[in-house]
Amino acid sequence: MPSQRDDSIAHDTVAPVHIAVDRAHASQPAGPIKIRARDVNVFYGDKQALFDVSLDVPENSVTALIGPSGCGKSTFLRSINRMNDTIPGCKVTGRIELDGEDVNDRSIDPVVLRARVGMVFQKPNPFPKTIFENVAYGPRIHGIATGKAELEEIVERSLKRAGLWAEVADRLHQPGTGLSGGQQQRLVIARAIAVSPEVILMDEPCSALDPIATARIEELIDELRNQYCIVIVTHSMAQAARVSQKTAFFHLGKLVEAGPTGEIFTNPRDSRTQDYITGRFG
């Protein structure tokens, strides 16, 4: 990881926990807006889980969503690729735009939307199929590959991308469930990028992994950032600081504060943000 620390702000005085904000990432100019959420409200039956959330997610960067448990991070994430549609009784209002199009518009097919917006879940969930079949799943259902050779190429490319190729090249036809947790999570990432999505949503992708596996995934995220727009939910401040350029803090279903990661961690505007990142609650 590149590490140029040219910070002049004494962040240590602000954050008693030592969080090394990666200035190089954090200060990079954000790309154009990829996802624009405006006044998003989400209801589970009668229960409202999100209140008027408005957030911009820039292209070619990593945006981290942080906040205490149950504050609605996953809910927000799932409303971007309309995974909330699969939950009976869940209702989303407001606008979420992907490249200027409202994802909840009737003309948008969730199938296409989800092909464009990939998702990685908290617990690795490889299908009970071979490694190859796991990665080939998306290209197959969407008819992306025209032949066997092309499919193999896509699988190989995606696995390489996900940094898993070296480990599984010789066992492509063994079950994906036989891999270790960290490998499974990378397999799932490979599965998601096999359809070349524009956005990748990650819901606590490292929470089930040990530190070494976590480091590998973080490296991977950092590499993927060049081509994709990545939104990641994490409970680890350190992780958010390490991998993200933009951070949004959620609390009790509301978006409290969002801004460049460096600012959020060194100079939060809201006292709740400060309390949270300094570990006073959460």
Binding site: D109, V112, H142, G143, I144, E198
Partner: peptide, 11 residues
């Protein structure tokens, strides 16, 4: 991205 979308939408 655009060509991919086309492939997906075709089916």
């Amino acid at each position: 991205a655009a060509s991919l979308r086309q492939t997906v939408e075709a089916r």
